[in-house]
């Protein structure tokens, strides 16, 4: 349990600093793999004819799926599959982490064939008192997804709870 967490100037300096972009691919195979993983039976996420009949260009991304990050050994995280370098890190020294939640905001449709360029940053820091873990540092990360036409199609925010 952390004694006392303080949001220092050094921490605040990290807020808003964007990572280098990383490519996420959306392919018919990757959409099917995700839809199968969740357990969908809706043919629109598997069958291109069904997707076109429903008004999409190709298989649409199921909700929360925003492409598969290109995996390159050494540059990618072997456990979580994303890039290792996601911008400046916070040296808070807290050992434990919980996933607090996620939010996705959509601005346009995303379909198989799209290539998304993704940047991420720490967008907010706060401290919360928890009865079970004491003080927790809440780190909100925001990723921005820009398609091959240069259009921002989605933003996803996630909260890491460090204690």
């Amino acid at each position: 349990m952390a004694e006392k967490i303080e949001i220092t100037e050094e921490f605040n300096a990290v807020i808003g600093v964007q990572s280098d972009p990383w490519i996420h691919e959306v392919t018919t195979t990757s959409v099917r793999a995700f839809a199968r993983g969740v357990g969908y039976s809706d043919p629109v996420y598997f069958d291109e004819e069904a997707a076109k009949a429903a008004g999409y260009r190709s298989l649409p991304c199921p909700p929360t799926y925003l492409g598969t990050p290109v995996f390159i050994p050494g540059l990618s995280n072997d456990t979580f599959s994303g890039p290792k370098n996601t911008g400046p890190s916070l040296n808070h020294g807290l050992k434990n982490v919980l996933d607090g939640g996620a939010e996705t905001e959509y601005f346009a449709d995303i379909c198989a064939g799209d290539t998304l360029s993704v940047t991420s940053c720490c967008s907010d820091l706060s401290i919360r008192e928890s009865k079970t873990t004491g003080q927790m540092l809440i780190v909100t990360s925001e990723s921005t997804y820009t398609n091959q036409e240069g259009q921002v199609v989605a933003k996803q925010r996630g909260q890491g709870l460090f204690y």
Binding site: V38, Y40, A54, P62, T64, T104, Y106, D109
Partner: peptide, 20 residues
């Protein structure tokens, strides 16, 4: 993602998700 499936099944492509 399963909550996304729930909403997707409800919409049945009669609309789109803005936030989830």
């Amino acid at each position: 993602a399963a909550l996304g499936e729930l909403v997707s099944n409800w919409l049945d492509h009669g609309g789109r998700i803005r936030t989830l």
